[in-house]
């Protein structure tokens, strides 16, 4: 079996302050990420997304549990050999040029000098910063810094890249470019771990997502799985379904008419067949039957509301 890119078991992090309350940022978190995936970690601000990534990268010490990156326990420098990281709100030393920045962090990631030299231009070009190669980063705009941050995160060709809010502060064109980079990494078999509160971004590219709230996993699955609304279908029909609506209503928990058909909530999947039978018997043609999908955003809000009702973090 292939080792998981990430294997997290009961990971807990409690921030202890001198004064004030303790903050439990991660609560016995379990998570597994397979290699080659684009993985999205979603959650509102303060959910613990950044804390999770920082814990995995040894920036923050966990208070409990364990985790491995490609089989190496976190905390050891070796666990960070195959990782790249774009911190949220990162700040590069202002006295370095773009080229020197890549060279410095590349060296820290263990790249030999010759390799660094050979790859700098291409790496800067891929984020559109080649022109700025010799300019000190203190003169960069936020978007430029973000692009340099991404170039830095993937410069040493890591197998697992953590991107914390990668599209934060980037204009739509830049966002598209970042998505392209992520997809390209994925094509080359790299694993990408994205932290984001911007759901549409994630929806576009992630294979699997986890919804984190108050340090706990609320949902986990593929985008398809998560956005499928349980038992809701839209039936588009030829002709008026009116005559058999009585029978249909008996099968459904809720029905509503829509233009050219109706929307039905069915408790069991077999009931779709029953409705088809009813319609066919009445001689009504069926154009299409589609399971209703909610947007990730709707689902997200719903999930958080449910959790709030359950008594999650106020």
């Amino acid at each position: 079996m292939e080792t998981a890119a990430l294997n997290i078991e009961n990971l807990t992090k409690t921030y202890k302050a001198w004064l004030g309350p303790q903050i439990q940022a991660l609560k016995e978190l379990n998570l597994k990420v397979d290699p080659g995936q684009i993985f999205g970690l979603l959650g509102p601000n303060g959910a613990g997304k950044t804390t999770l990534v920082k814990t995995l990268l040894g920036i923050v010490a966990p208070t409990g549990g364990a985790a491995e990156i490609f089989g190496v326990p976190i905390g050891r420098p070796a666990a960070r050999r195959r990782t790249g990281y774009l911190p949220e709100d990162h700040r590069f030393p202002g006295y370095l040029t773009a080229a020197a920045t890549l060279d410095f962090y590349g060296a820290l990631s263990g790249m030999p000098r010759s390799e660094r030299k050979a790859k700098i231009d291409a790496a800067l070009d891929s984020v559109g910063l080649l022109k700025w190669k010799k300019v000190k980063t203190r003169k960069y705009s936020k978007g430029m810094k973000q692009r340099l941050g991404i170039a830095q995160a993937i410069f040493h060709d890591p197998d697992l890249v953590f991107l914390d809010e990668p599209t934060d502060g980037v204009d739509p064109v830049g966002r598209k470019a970042i998505r392209e980079i992520i997809l390209d990494l994925n094509r080359r078999g790299r694993t990408v771990f994205i932290n984001s509160h911007l759901l549409s971004e994630v929806e576009m590219i992630c294979h699997r997502v986890v919804i984190l709230h108050a340090g706990e996993v609320l949902r986990e699955g593929t985008i398809q799985e998560l956005t499928r609304s349980e038992g809701e279908y839209v039936f588009c029909v030829r002709g008026d379904p009116g005559p058999c609506m009585g029978g249909i209503k008996a099968l459904c928990t809720a029905v509503s008419g829509i233009d050219g058909g109706f929307k039905a909530s069915l408790p069991r999947e077999e009931d779709v067949d029953a409705i088809v039978d009813l319609l066919r018997k009445s001689g009504i043609g069926i154009r299409s039957i589609t399971p209703v999908k909610v947007s990730l955003e709707e689902m997200f809000i719903k999930v958080l509301e449910e959790d709030g009702a359950k008594g999650g973090r106020p």
Binding site: L57, I59, A78, R80, R81, T83, Y85, P87, D89, P93
Partner: peptide, 18 residues
């Protein structure tokens, strides 16, 4: 202190350096 500024230190510590 400059090295330990937020945003700088994160990146540094994420590297495979003890």
């Amino acid at each position: 202190p400059e090295m330990m500024a937020k945003g700088t230190i994160d990146l540094l510590l994420s590297k495979p350096v003890a």
